[in-house]
Structure formats: structure tokens, C-alpha cells
Computed example of a mutant assay.
Amino acid sequence: MQTVRRFLVLAPVAFVVTTVAYLIYVLARPDGSIDLRLVGIALLVGLVGAAIVLTAVLVVAIALLRLWGVSNAWAALGLAFGVIAIIQGIDYATIGDDGWRMLTFQVLAGVQVPGWLTFAVGLLVGDLRNRAARNAVRPAA
């Protein structure tokens, strides 16, 4: 359960990072114009991108925990990334039109990359913090 909790804590951060990254991508126009309608779309895309990553990670984490008794967050993250990569590869291969294929691949990959990186960095920071707390020297009383 601790593994699932770690991912749930990182979910809002992944949503914010994904949304901000997509907003920067959308609003970075050569002419400098800003379309406020894109902000709502960016919020939706950020939510969907973070939800895809979180759902994949939680499904894999719960499956690992229940089926094999593995509670390693890094294993869950890596396996979920592999599963999503395979699903996106199949999706990429089955779409007929080359232009549409590349567009869907760029959107799926581009929106999810900040989410994956957020979860990985969050796990790394949590592990380093836990290790530092264990290794802290306590003064003798």
C-alpha cells in the first residue's frame, strides 16, 4: 500500500508539471499571440496526460503487489512505462495515415513525458530523503 500511496501523492504534482509543460508548448508561438481558449485545452490535456500515466502506474503497482508480492515503486514505474510504450507502439503501427500517425504519437508521447519524469524524480527525491533520514547521526543522550 505504501507504493500506491507514493504515486497518489505525486499525482497532483505530475498534473501541474504536465499542464505547465503543455501550456509552454502551446503558448510558445512565433508571433507572440496568446489564445486564452488554449488554456482550457491545456488543462484538459494535462489532466488526461497525467491520468494516463497515473492509471498505468497504479494498475501495474497493484498487479505487482497482489500477484507477485512486489512492492517496489521503481519496478512498478518501469513496468508501467514499458506497457504504455508497447500500447503506443501498437497504436502507432495500426493507424493508416502517416500524418495522423505522427500527430497522435507526438501528442501521446509529448504529453506523457513530463508525467513520467515527474514520477521518476519524485521517487528519487523520496528515496534520497528516506536514505538521508536513516543515515542521520543522532546525538548521544
Rank of each mutant, 00 (worst) to 15 (best):
F105Y: 07
A73L: 04
V137Q: 14
G69W: 08
R29H: 11
G32P: 05
G46I: 01
Q112I: 00
D127Q: 13
W100N: 07
V125F: 05
P114T: 05
L8W: 08
R66C: 04
V17Y: 02
M1V: 12
T104L: 15
N130Y: 06
T3M: 14
V17S: 09
A56F: 07
R6P: 03
M102H: 09
L23R: 00
L108W: 13
L43S: 01
I90Y: 12
G40K: 00
V70D: 13
I95A: 03
A140T: 09
G96P: 06
L47D: 01
T94K: 11
L64G: 07
Y25N: 14
R29G: 11
R134D: 13
N72Y: 02
V45P: 00
G99P: 02
V107T: 14
V26Q: 10
F81K: 05
G46N: 01
P114R: 00
T94G: 01
G89V: 12
V17L: 12
V70Q: 07
P30K: 10
I87C: 14
V16W: 04
L79H: 05
L23D: 02
W100G: 00
F15T: 03
V9H: 09
A109R: 10
P12E: 06
S33T: 15
I84S: 08
L58G: 02
I34V: 15
D98K: 08
L117N: 05
V111S: 13
V17D: 08
V16L: 11
G69F: 09
R37P: 01
I86F: 12
L44H: 02
L108Y: 10
A50K: 03
A63N: 06
A63K: 07
V121S: 07
L108F: 12
W116I: 04
P30A: 15
A76C: 08
